[in-house]
Design a protein around this nucleic acid. Sequence first.
DNA 1: TGCAAGTGTATTGTATCCAATATCCTGAAA
DNA 2: TTTCAGGATATTGGATACAATACACTTGCA
Lengths: 223, 223
Amino acid sequence: MAGARVVKKQSLPEMIASDLRERILSGELAEGEAIRQELLAEEYDVSRMPVREALKRLNAEGLVLWENNRGGSVVKHSLPEIGEIFDLRLLIELDLFRRSIPQMGEADFATCERILTEMENSDDISQWGKLNYSYHMALYAAADRRMSNEFLERLSLHSDRYVRIHLSVMKQREPAKEEHRQLLALARNGEVAAGTALLEQHILRTKTELLEMIAAQRKTPSR
Amino acid sequence: MAGARVVKKQSLPEMIASDLRERILSGELAEGEAIRQELLAEEYDVSRMPVREALKRLNAEGLVLWENNRGGSVVKHSLPEIGEIFDLRLLIELDLFRRSIPQMGEADFATCERILTEMENSDDISQWGKLNYSYHMALYAAADRRMSNEFLERLSLHSDRYVRIHLSVMKQREPAKEEHRQLLALARNGEVAAGTALLEQHILRTKTELLEMIAAQRKTPSR
DNA sequence: TGCAAGTGTATTGTATCCAATATCCTGAAA
DNA sequence: TTTCAGGATATTGGATACAATACACTTGCA
């Protein structure tokens, strides 16, 4: 047979949405920035129709604000809202980790290991968010909770967005690396209580650091 | 001034999406049923374009399954997925209620009372889901958690869908009526622990009943 | 009969065109 | 100077037309 590897055929709107998502997460499209359909259509060399669908999609995901007859703009969250995103992640991830640990097998541990080394070797910031998300998902894969994962994906999208913008300045990475290793070790030993406690600390620490950074940056509208 | 009451101008796709949402929740559009754009366009007397957008929107909300070049169909969830919907509701609603109770004031209690009496007097099946959702939201309004509410809205959508299709309103309403009153009373007294415990029971009871009904019905695919 | 290729039809996907709406600019009146 | 009306321009919303794809059906062949 010709093609052994099959990549799920993406539709045009999907591909455009993926790219725009990345452009928003990376900060290339800034908070509050207006989005012109025509302009994007030219950039992607398509008509406005698939661009429109992509934007509506991102609107449903909460990344794009849509106003009737005025078009879209990049969503800007308030500080409390960003805090909430992390609180919700906390709720769902703790639940997932608690359910996952007892179900994890050698294959799961191996996958986690693999992603972990990949993270430690990669310096590409734009990859970090994806890898971080993959790792967390790998930890929860054994729980086999489709809906939770779907919701978590959306939450991670938003938290990654703000983490990535400030990541370069954040000390974030060193402690996170250590915590990731420990999470896996605790999961391996089936230590649910200790594992979830560490996970909680892991997420809340990021939340605190991030909120401080953003608060400071929003005080000084310079730059 | 002319119009004191302003209803947020809805766009065509929004209106169509709302109506389709209702048709799916009510079961008029059945699980797995294919959706023809042209047909809907004729029904609403518009072109396929706004219908498409509405369907894509419902796709993003998880009510419509979309397959490239094959169009949309009404999503059908597995039993474990339906269970998860309730588990997620539980996580978020407990968190909201816990945060809300200490913040609630007389205005909040009054709103809850109002909705409660409205619920007890209304016999309209299609309204019950909305009222039930309104009541829960009123309980959590004081928490002032925008993101959580947004996520909860989507979860409630899905749970309402299955509740409406499978549980007779009457059977559902009698115990719920009592619990709803008690929730409000506990909130009034600031009894966080007792309140959240009752809320947990309230949600889990519905989950159990519902899963049993659906399991039984899916065993016998008879109509 | 069973199956594969090919043809025709139904349906979705995208581009283009026109209509509706918002925004910007100008100028006149208070 | 401020403000408001009105018109020019930019932008989005929706309808239509056409292209691409999937599906059902037939035909030809083993």
